[in-house]
């Protein structure tokens, strides 16, 4: 699946998107896999309350299942307007 990062999540991880081969069943499991990779991921995912997630461009929660999902995006709370 494609994993996208925005705003400070993108800056901390150091890239805007990447293809991830994962068998994680939920967003929370995917986060654990990513956080275990390297310090920069662990730092970006250290506080889930400061993060939001979208699955195929719709807001979701961290317990949402990943079956069939093609695009996962992680970002801080939005500040539009």
């Amino acid at each position: 699946m494609q994993v996208l990062y925005f705003a400070w999540v993108r800056e901390r991880i150091g890239l805007p998107r990447e293809e991830i081969d994962s068998s994680a069943a939920t967003v929370r499991e995917l986060v654990s896999e990513l956080a275990a990779r390297e310090d920069r991921y662990a730092m970006a995912f250290s506080d889930l309350s400061a993060l939001r997630v979208a699955l195929d461009q719709d807001l979701a929660d961290f317990d949402a299942p990943l079956a069939g999902v093609r695009e996962v995006a992680f970002f801080p709370p939005m500040t539009g307007g």
């Binding site: 925005f6 705003a7 807001l59 970002f75 709370p77 939005m78 500040t79 539009g80 307007g81």
Partner: peptide
């Protein structure tokens, strides 16, 4: 306005002489 402030995926970054900061979402917006 209320919904697009916290449900549309935009993020603001302020760049000043002192550096750059991402604008934090406010509890009152939620």
């Amino acid at each position: 306005m209320d919904y697009l402030k916290s449900r549309a995926p935009f993020w603001k970054k302020e760049i000043t002489g002192d550096g750059a900061d991402w604008v934090a979402a406010k509890d009152e917006d939620e």
